[in-house]
Structure formats: structure tokens, C-alpha cells
Amino acid sequence: MKKAAYLFLTPALTAIFVFFFIPVIAAFLISFTDFDIYAIGNYSRFQFTGLENYRKLFENDLFWKALVNTFYFVVASGPLSIAISLGAALLLNSKLVRFKGIFRLVYFMPVVTTLVAVSIVWRFIYHPEFGLLNYGLSFLGVEKIDWLGDPNWAMPSIILLSIWKNFGYNMIIFIAGLQNIPEELYEAAQIEGANAFQRFTKITLPMLAPTTIFITIITMIGYFQLFAEPYIMTQGGPLDSTLSIVLYMYQEGFRWWNMGYSSAIAFVLFIIILTGTLLQMWYQRRRTA
């Protein structure tokens, strides 16, 4: 019986071990070498350089820029998209609304689509001359904006796209969370004379807390890995204002083949995500304790 268990486990565990765990360890080691295009041509041309890659990384303005951009993206679009998801979930959970299924479907549609394809679509929507967005805004009296060409607007443009693309996902999770809140709680509150706002802050929000924390973690992890949108729409420009950590890692590693350096970037990303996750888990534990 035990033998059977191991047999069932072997394929998956071997695959995960060989093609995930070993590469993680290897990446860690490579990040302490100067492995690059010279070394690919001739394996004798690389050596251990200790913390050199990390030192270069922390001295590089571009890296800090990518870091700041990525945080900007996460901090701006994370809470915003979660708030919109929650709003949409509340509306769709309202007893007043019928045809919930259809609305839910519509709002959810962007989630399942291919990021590369929608990035291309939005690139044209953002076109300063012929784009739909500027045209729509012109009715509100807004002047033409060069969305992707202006360093101040490029990141907000990417944020808008990613909110549009992702809010449906969290909305679904919030709807599930809302449906788990017992109806009696609201009835009891109503009897005691609590108004809608009080019911929201005293019942809905606290009851949703675990859901919210879960959503925050997955959203954050996902957003830190920003890549395809800037790759397609701006290539990191203008003025590196949309260069994300993963895009920087990609460019260094797979465009210029500075693989040691690129691995160091990947590890910094890992540490950031790990720290964020641990912080949120610690916060959650403190709340429930």
C-alpha cells in the first residue's frame, strides 16, 4: 500500500524536483558567478565572483528604477483593483439586481483572455491620435494625452489595463466570500438599527477579512511579476518609466545573456515576494489571535 503511494507520487515529484527545485538551487549558485554569453560559447570562461552581481545590482540606477516602477505598479493597482473588485462584488451580490449571471460573465470576460492580445488591443486604444480613449475623453473636454509616450502617463496606462484585465477574478472570490456571511448577522444588525454603512463596516468587512488577505497576497504576487504589458506596449520606456523587475531580468538574461546578473535580479524578486507574503501572513495571524 505504501509502495503504491510512492508509485503515484513519483512522476509528479520527480518532475517538480528536477525541473523546479534543482533550477532554484542552480539559479542561486549562478547568481554568484559571471556566467554570460562568453561562457555559453566556452564553459571555461566563467568564474565565481561572490557577491559581485548583487553589488553591481544595488549600484545600478536602472535596477532601482525598475524596483521603484514595480512598487509603484503594485501599490497603485493592487488596492485599486481590489477595491473595484469588492465594489463589483457588492453590487452583484445585492438583492436588487437580477441577471447576476450575465453581469458577472461580462465583468469576468477580460480575465480569461490572452494578456499579449489585449495588450496589443490596448496599445491601439491608447494611440494619441486615433485611439478610442482620447476620443472618449474628448467629450469630457479632456485634452489629448500621449498615454504610452509620456513618461508620466505610461505607467498609469499600464495600471488601467491591468485593473481592467484582473478585477473580475477577485470579484468572483469576493462574491464567494460574501455568500458565506450568514444572513442572520445582517438581520440582527437591522433590528438593532444599524444603517447600511454600519452594516458594511461592522459586519461585511470583518467577515471578509480572510478573503481580503488571501486576495491581497495573490494579487500582489501576480503584480510583482509584471512583464507582458510593458514588453508589448512600451518595451519599458519612455525614459524607463515602465521598466519592471521581470522585464529588466528578461532583458539582462535573455537579451544580453548576462545570466549571472539576471539570476541575481530573479532572487531579489523572490525575496521581495517572500517578504510581502510573510508580512501579510503575520498580520493575519495577529488579527485572528
Partner: peptide
Amino acid sequence: YRFAGKDAIFKMLLSSMVIPAQVTMLPLF
């Protein structure tokens, strides 16, 4: 099933989920 190291392996797998796939890309390549 119950087998030796089950919980340890499972926990290790779960905690590996915080490692972003990008870390593995270069060596895997």
C-alpha cells in the same frame, strides 16, 4: 495514503509556491 515524510513533503511543496517561476527560468533554459 499514509507514508513516511508525507507531511514534510507536502509542506515543502506548498511553501515552494512562493518562489516565482522566473527564478527557475535561466537554469531550466
